[in-house]
């Protein structure tokens, strides 16, 4: 009778084989992912079921939130406060923001975890317009953004915030920003990794120094230029 524990060590070979394939995949996955992304983009554009959205790298946005649930604020209740080192602190309703000159940008969105959404339309009020309205005092160096999820924060230097591609955005893809995407109003920092574009924007405080935001306390770069930070070399988005 054949006894257990004899025969070829197939188990070890399987284990080492999986390990080898894993290393090979990690070495070549970057190239495979690129061609796969292109293929998947073509398929998912014609996929009515949305199943392709569940596959790795399945295009579109991924939902990331550090708070415990999606905070909801109606268009009527929404307020954006601007305070700190400004001459005229104030708060803006959604209607107030709609009444201000709007800017529409079409840019790629790049997440620091790797996913990218191409050619996406953003509409909102330039931060520089809000700053001019409030009157920035001398000695101001930076902006601190707070969110009505009560957890997330972000920051920009004053020079970064004055760029024409930094928005308080109320439209994504030419539709109102949904609650899951950070509506009614979110930050849109076009040239930076997407963690800069804080959802559920509720406050802008002008400060005399940069206070690092939520993820920046956990090692993300404060100056989050796409392609020039966080050890990544993605194509710039703006």
């Amino acid at each position: 009778m054949a006894k257990d524990g004899r025969g070829a060590p197939v188990g070890r070979r399987v284990m080492l084989g999986v390990l080898g394939l894993g290393v090979l995949g990690a070495a070549t996955g970057s190239y495979v992912q690129n061609s796969y992304d292109n293929l998947l983009a073509q398929i998912s554009s014609r996929d009515p079921t949305g199943v392709t959205g569940l596959l790795p790298g399945g295009g579109g946005f991924r939902f990331y939130s550090v708070s415990e649930s999606i905070p909801h604020r109606s268009d009527q209740d929404y307020k954006l406060t601007v305070d700190g080192l400004v001459d005229r602190p104030g708060s803006y309703s959604l209607a107030d923001l709609h009444a201000m000159p709007s800017t529409r940008l079409v840019r790629d969105v790049q997440c620091v975890t790797g996913w990218r959404v191409p050619h996406y339309a953003w509409t909102g009020v330039k931060l520089s317009d809000l700053l001019d309205k409030a009157g920035v005092q001398p000695g101001a160096k930076a902006l601190r953004f707070t969110c009505f999820d009560g957890v997330y924060t972000e920051s920009l230097t004053l020079d970064q915030a004055r760029r024409p591609d930094m928005l308080a955005a109320y439209r994504m893809d030419d539709k109102p920003v949904t609650a899951a995407h950070g509506g009614p109003v979110r930050l849109y920092a076009a040239p930076m990794y997407f963690y800069k574009s804080a959802k559920w924007l509720s406050g802008i405080t002008v400060t005399d120094h940069v206070e690092p935001g939520y993820w920046e306390h956990y090692g993300y770069d404060v100056d989050a230029w796409v392609g020039k930070s966080n050890g990544r070399d993605d194509d710039p988005t703006s």
């Binding site: 995949g25 070495a27 996955g29 992912q33």
Partner: peptide, 19 residues
């Protein structure tokens, strides 16, 4: 992320997701 160059990180994400 600072341990390895970007190609390895992208490749690792690829393997991690599919596996």
């Amino acid at each position: 992320p600072y341990l390895t160059p970007l190609v390895w990180r992208t490749g690792s994400t690829f393997v991690h997701d599919w596996l």
